[in-house]
Nucleic acid binder design. Structure first.
Length: 107
DNA sequence: TCGGTGACGCGTT
DNA sequence: GAACGCGCCACCG
């Protein structure tokens, strides 16, 4: 069935546990569209579901992406810090410490 | 259906 | 390492 791309994105992001982050490209790859990173951003931009932790999605460098809404960047960062996510001097998040691989890897 | 847009990502310089 | 240009895909009018 033609499940909307958006729903795939939202459903996946909903599975990202607190204190963990994932990149747009990773989300796209996980839903079978490795080249649709930009579309993931579009989907989240049109997000209308309050149950989606959109703030756990960052760019490939582990940084909070710039957005039209000025205060959104600070908000996202604040939300992540509230979950225990730490940022380095460049505002980057360490993937090895906070990156989500899709499923709790055994090792 | 066609054309423009945007919360991205990669290669090149 | 940073900046610029291009491609990619789904959403919208």
């Amino acid at each position: 069935v033609p499940v909307r791309f958006r729903e795939r994105v939202f459903d996946l992001v909903r599975r990202v546990p607190p204190g963990r982050v994932v990149s747009y490209g990773a989300v796209a790859a996980m839903i079978g569209r490795p080249r649709a990173a930009r579309a993931v951003g579009t989907a989240l931009a049109r997000l209308d579901d309050d149950g989606v932790p959109w703030w756990r999605v960052v760019d490939r460098h582990g940084r909070v992406p710039a957005r039209p809404a000025a205060g959104a960047v600070a908000l996202q960062r604040a939300l992540l810090e509230g979950e225990g996510v730490r940022f380095d001097g460049d505002g980057c998040i360490d993937w090895k410490s906070f990156g989500w691989e899709g499923e709790e890897a055994t090792g």
